[in-house]
Simulated scan of single mutants.
Amino acid sequence: MPPIPGSGLAKGLAVTLRTMTRKSHTAQYPDAQPELPPRTRGVIGLFEENCTVCMLCARECPDWCIYIDSHKETVPAATPGGRERSRNVLDRFAIDFALCMYCGICIEVCPFDALFWSPEFEYAETDIHELTHERDKLREWMWTVPEPPALDPGAEEPKELAAARKAADKLAAAQAAEAAQAAQAAETTGAAGAPTQAADGQPGPGAQGGTE
């Protein structure tokens, strides 16, 4: 059956009329801040204490927008006669957000949880050169990172906890087996060294000493 002429226009007008009768929900930004999801990719925060200057984030960044400088310091030996060690000390950690494409690779590859997503997004600048933020600014954004969501009670146990519990159970089983063997050996030794008596109450062949 061919469509009725003007039916498409009527459907469009019906959608318009339904929309006009609904109450609009307009957030008056910036007076009313939006409620962003907890996993919003707003900006990257730096937890400097966890950074070991491994350079993994800078090497894996596809835009090469992470700049890291460091120097080495000698750490005295912890024990007398020990060997001195050297460690990397962070001098500069900067991210050029004019180049960043917010892929999150740097956060994923960080082995020490030094980088986190923050929902902050109000860091626009009038000069593109000012979009390179140093570690002091990245550290300020770190305190705006939301807490991780609680684990689902029905979810599987994390692999790290399962492996640790398995190792602890294995160690406890080994210690219990060693204790049982030690107790059995002590009983055997005590039984072998104890004197034996014959049926008539006289010392048996296993008794120590003798008669003249």
Rank of each mutant, 00 (worst) to 15 (best):
P5F: 05
G6Y: 04
G12C: 02
A14H: 03
A14K: 08
A27S: 12
P34M: 05
E35L: 08
E35Q: 08
E35D: 11
P37H: 11
P37S: 14
P38L: 15
T40W: 11
T40E: 13
T40R: 08
R41Y: 06
I44M: 08
E49Y: 04
C51R: 02
T52N: 14
T52I: 13
R59A: 11
E60Q: 12
P62N: 07
I66T: 04
D69W: 03
K72S: 10
K72G: 03
A77I: 05
G81C: 07
G82F: 11
G82R: 04
V89R: 09
R92T: 14
A94L: 03
A94R: 07
A98D: 12
L99P: 01
C100Q: 09
M101V: 14
I105F: 08
I105N: 07
I107M: 04
D113G: 09
L115Y: 01
E120L: 01
L138I: 04
L138Y: 00
R139W: 01
M142R: 08
W143G: 00
W143I: 00
V145Y: 00
E147K: 11
P149Y: 00
A150S: 13
L151M: 12
D152N: 15
P158D: 12
P158W: 00
P158S: 10
K159T: 11
R165L: 12
K166C: 02
A168H: 07
L171V: 09
L171F: 04
E178G: 07
A180M: 02
A183R: 12
E187C: 01
T188R: 14
G190T: 05
P205V: 05
